[in-house]
Amino acid sequence: MRRDEVEPGGVDALLGARLAELRAERGWSLGELAERSGISRSTLSRAERAETSPTAALLNRLCAVYGRTMSQLLSEIEAEPAPVVRSADQPVWEDPSSGFVRRSVSPPHTGLRGELVEGRLAPGADIAYDRPPVPGLEQHVWLLEGELEVTVQDVAHSLGAGDCLRLRVWGPTRFRCPGPRPARYALAVVLP
């Protein structure tokens, strides 16, 4: 499936519908959301209509505007929260344009402050977030395999397998896999 083709009734369709609901709940036009997020009206419209699969950077900007983490947003399109989510049932979201794969490991629950995510970056993958989804978000990045460079407010941290970085996110961050092997990491996210 090409990036600009989405499966009817799939994750992208559910995500698009939820994004449209969040905008409608606030009474914002596409123009108002475009001003708040820095994303063009046409891109927002295509994402809401599930005509395209949003990138990680785009979702991050929308999460910042709506005051949610990416996991919270994705959990809002899941059916019912369960106390246990088997490995085969853990939602996986992929951003093919950046080489980023995200697995929501924690059972979804909107009332909890912490969550666990598995991230995978292909060699050479480079993802820049211009702002945190929630200011002051606490993150623990535990690198399981490969090499990872995490830049937080212009300070680069090079991680090797087994290393763990703790940070509070107030500004831009960047995750980069210098290669030659993929990077796989566990990310613990805690709301302030």
Rank of each mutant, 00 (worst) to 15 (best):
G171L: 04
V6M: 04
E25V: 06
S106R: 11
L144R: 13
R113C: 10
R18W: 03
G10H: 09
A122N: 07
P81M: 13
R120Q: 14
R113N: 13
R36S: 04
T52E: 07
L143K: 01
R3Y: 12
A183H: 01
S37L: 02
R61Q: 15
A47W: 08
W28P: 00
R68P: 01
D154K: 12
Y66H: 12
A20P: 01
A50T: 08
L144C: 12
A88G: 09
A128Q: 07
A24W: 01
E5I: 11
A88C: 12
R131W: 00
W93F: 15
R176K: 13
A50E: 04
R174L: 07
D130S: 13
H140T: 11
S104L: 13
P123C: 12
A79M: 11
V101I: 10
R26K: 14
Q139M: 14
E94M: 05
N60G: 14
L143M: 14
P123T: 05
A186V: 10
R131L: 09
H140F: 14
R3D: 14
P132T: 06
A188L: 00
L187S: 07
N60S: 15
S71M: 13
G99E: 01
T69K: 00
E21V: 15
G38A: 08
L159F: 05
P108M: 07
W28A: 00
G179D: 07
P135Y: 10
S158K: 10
P178E: 09
D89E: 15
W142P: 01
L19A: 05
F100C: 02
D95P: 09
E80Y: 09
S37A: 15
A82Y: 13
G111F: 14
H109C: 15
L137E: 00
Y185D: 05
P54S: 12
D130Q: 13
R103C: 03
E25T: 10
M1R: 12
S71K: 02
P135G: 05
C164E: 09
A64M: 06
D126N: 09
A82G: 15
Y185G: 00
P178A: 06
P54Q: 02
D163P: 11
A13C: 10
P182N: 04
E48M: 03
S87A: 15
A125N: 02
S53N: 13
C177Y: 02
A13T: 12
G38C: 10
L121H: 00
R174Q: 07
A50I: 02
A79G: 09
W170C: 08
L74S: 00
Y66E: 00
S71C: 13
S42E: 14
R61N: 00
G31P: 10
